[in-house]
Amino acid sequence: MDNVAIVVDDLRAAVAFFTELGMELEGEAQVEGVWADRTVGLDGVRSEIAMMRTPDGHGKLELTRYRAPEASAPEPHDPPPNTLGLHRVMFAVDDIDDTVARLRAHGAELLGEVARYEDVFRLCYLRGPAGIIVALAEQIG
């Protein structure tokens, strides 16, 4: 797999959010033209992207802001975690409490609470940029 794309309405805020998670900005680009229209199946595509890379270099997120055609909001606006389709991205973190606190400063909201799975993990789901669900896992055992 090369990357996972997330469509956002505020590219700068999304870059700041995922930078806070430890990802690194690999590059930015403007995307438009006939090739883009043909690739995504939309007419008149004009977008800007930011490619984010995990510190180990093995994972990437493509954050995309569509200028045209305008992005549409999903229904319902903030779908629950059991919605069919791609709905969350999980990150391994060293300190889940610190990470949650730092992400709250970027607008993240816990969906439930930080829970313990046996003596192996502490886990939580947060609502992040564009309403996506970001899961965090801290290995404790």
Results as ranks from 00 to 15, higher is better:
42 L>A: 15
89 V>S: 07
139 Q>L: 06
98 D>Q: 04
111 L>W: 08
53 R>I: 08
92 A>W: 08
15 V>K: 06
3 N>V: 04
76 P>K: 01
31 V>R: 02
131 G>Q: 05
49 I>R: 00
125 Y>V: 07
64 T>R: 03
91 F>D: 06
51 M>W: 00
7 V>D: 10
15 V>Y: 08
58 H>S: 13
97 D>F: 07
49 I>F: 00
116 R>G: 10
48 E>K: 01
57 G>S: 06
63 L>H: 05
98 D>W: 03
134 V>Q: 13
120 V>W: 11
124 C>N: 02
121 F>G: 06
1 M>E: 12
1 M>D: 13
131 G>M: 11
55 P>T: 04
128 G>Q: 03
32 E>C: 09
120 V>E: 07
29 A>T: 13
65 R>Q: 13
29 A>C: 05
108 A>I: 02
41 G>H: 10
22 G>L: 04
5 A>M: 07
10 D>A: 10
87 H>Q: 08
17 F>N: 08
59 G>N: 02
114 V>I: 15
113 E>T: 08
71 A>T: 09
102 R>M: 14
5 A>V: 08
9 D>W: 05
74 P>S: 10
35 W>H: 12
128 G>W: 03
7 V>T: 15
56 D>S: 05
47 S>K: 01
125 Y>D: 13
69 P>F: 14
49 I>L: 13
38 R>E: 15
59 G>A: 07
79 P>T: 05
86 L>G: 12
51 M>R: 02
76 P>Q: 04
8 V>M: 09
73 A>P: 01
14 A>E: 14
68 A>W: 03
130 A>V: 06
126 L>G: 15
128 G>D: 05
113 E>Q: 07
127 R>A: 15
132 I>M: 09
55 P>W: 09
35 W>D: 13
56 D>K: 00
78 D>H: 03
48 E>Q: 07
76 P>N: 06
46 R>D: 12
138 E>T: 02
141 G>S: 08
88 R>N: 12
77 H>E: 14
107 G>M: 02
43 D>T: 05
114 V>N: 04
129 P>Q: 12
121 F>Y: 15
14 A>T: 09
104 R>A: 15
98 D>M: 05
83 T>E: 11
59 G>V: 03
103 L>D: 14
16 A>N: 12
22 G>I: 02
121 F>K: 01
5 A>Q: 04
92 A>V: 11
43 D>Y: 07
65 R>F: 15
5 A>R: 00
67 R>V: 15
69 P>H: 12
4 V>G: 09
44 G>E: 07
6 I>Y: 10
134 V>L: 14
129 P>G: 12
49 I>S: 07
113 E>K: 00
30 Q>H: 07
72 S>Q: 03
114 V>C: 11
25 L>Q: 10
111 L>E: 11
83 T>V: 10
67 R>A: 15
9 D>G: 10
98 D>E: 11
7 V>W: 02
19 T>M: 00
96 I>V: 13
56 D>P: 01
52 M>A: 13
120 V>M: 08
133 I>V: 15
82 N>S: 12
23 M>E: 11
12 R>K: 08
8 V>Y: 11
43 D>C: 03
139 Q>H: 11
76 P>G: 09
